[in-house]
Write a protein that binds this DNA or RNA. Structure first.
Length: 315
DNA sequence: TTGTGTTTTATTGCCTCC
DNA sequence: GGAGGCAATAAAACACAA
């Protein structure tokens, strides 16, 4: 690239003169450009580029940039600003000045732009461009800051969510353990209940049957079988229906059965315990967050949408 | 010295506002 | 419709390692 090559040459030249004042630094360059512009050198198109020594790398003071950019007809200034358009870096002082101005207000009104341009010896357009680029840099930095704080926030939330999850598991295990205990205890209680009820129901009935047998000759009741039936009936005091009564009357002992806990199905056991125990002692899996069904108040998990909203928000 | 990555300056095209 | 802002991009300027 021709311009780049040319510029490198100019840049190298100015690098050799790092402490020169801009005015003195520009002189050799001026000679280069003057000679080049007057020759057929490929140096300078309308957009040829050059670096002014004092500006290079922002090192060294470039006082000329603080001259009015186009106001006094000064020959040097005029010459400087009538160079073909050149891309050059601003001096440290210029940048500091602009930074300070930017800190005060990052938008640039026309009057301010003109004033800054005059104070810095720049084209108003350069000032505008600098503010434009500075705003872009500021925005990028701001986004980085926002990202950092959001990421920290995310980490905090995730940590507390994990804590809650662990606590939920722990509580769930505890509930399961207690439920088991309650079931066992319930079975024991059931046995006691059965025996007590049998005794309570059997004695009066037995007595009444004996009484009625002794009252009438026509009575064919076999006391022994009645006793057996009564024992049977004690399985449930609710057996006051006709069928059971008929069985009692016919003395059919084939219906007699021993009360057997093993006859109680698991469902019955469940139903019983659920009848006797509060609902919260038997949480369903889906109630404690193992289902995508609508959650009830026992749900310690996050609603699905919230989960997605939180965890899909990744970087 | 040179290659390469980053920063800075400047342009372009589009959009919004007055 | 012109001025100004912004995003995307180009390209110079710069830093730095090999």
């Amino acid at each position: 690239m021709v311009d780049g090559t040319v510029f490198s040459a100019a840049s190298s030249l100015t690098t050799l003169l790092p402490n020169q004042t801009p005015a003195s630094a520009s002189q050799p360059l001026d000679s280069i450009f003057h000679s080049s512009s007057s020759s057929s050198s490929p140096f300078l198109g309308s957009r040829s580029i050059v670096s002014f020594g004092g500006v290079q790398g922002g090192k060294g003071c470039n006082e000329s940039f603080f001259l009015p950019y186009d106001d006094n007809g000064d020959e040097d200034t005029d010459e400087y600003f009538h160079q073909p358009e050149k891309k050059r870096r601003l001096s440290v002082e210029q940048v500091q000045f602009l930074e300070k101005s930017f800190d005060e207000e990052n938008k640039l009104e026309p009057e301010r732009k003109i004033r800054l341009a005059k104070e810095l010896g720049l084209q108003p357009r350069q000032v505008a461009i600098w503010f434009q680029n500075r705003r872009a840099r500021w925005k990028t930095k701001q986004m980085e800051k926002d990202y950092d704080s959001l990421h920290a926030c995310y980490n905090d939330l995730k940590a507390s969510y994990d804590d809650l999850l662990r606590e939920k598991d722990k509580l769930q295990a505890e509930v399961a353990k207690l439920s088991e205990k309650v079931l066992e205890r319930e079975k024991l209680e059931e046995g006691k209940f059965y025996r007590a009820e049998t005794k309570e129901f059997q004695e009066p009935l037995q007595k009444s049957m004996i009484d009625s047998a002794s009252e009438g000759e026509g009575s064919k009741v076999d006391i022994s079988s009645a006793k057996s039936d009564m024992f049977d009936s004690s399985e449930s005091p609710r057996y006051t229906d006709g069928v059971h009564s008929a069985l009692l009357e016919t003395g059919d002992s084939s219906y007699v059965f021993e009360p057997d806990q093993s006859d109680m199905s698991q469902d019955e056991g469940d139903n019983l315990s659920k009848t006797l125990l509060p609902h919260y002692m038997f949480p369903k899996l889906e109630d404690v967050g193992y289902s995508d069904q609508p959650h009830n108040s026992c749900d310690f998990g996050f609603p699905e949408e919230e989960d997605q909203a939180i965890w899909s928000w990744s970087y």
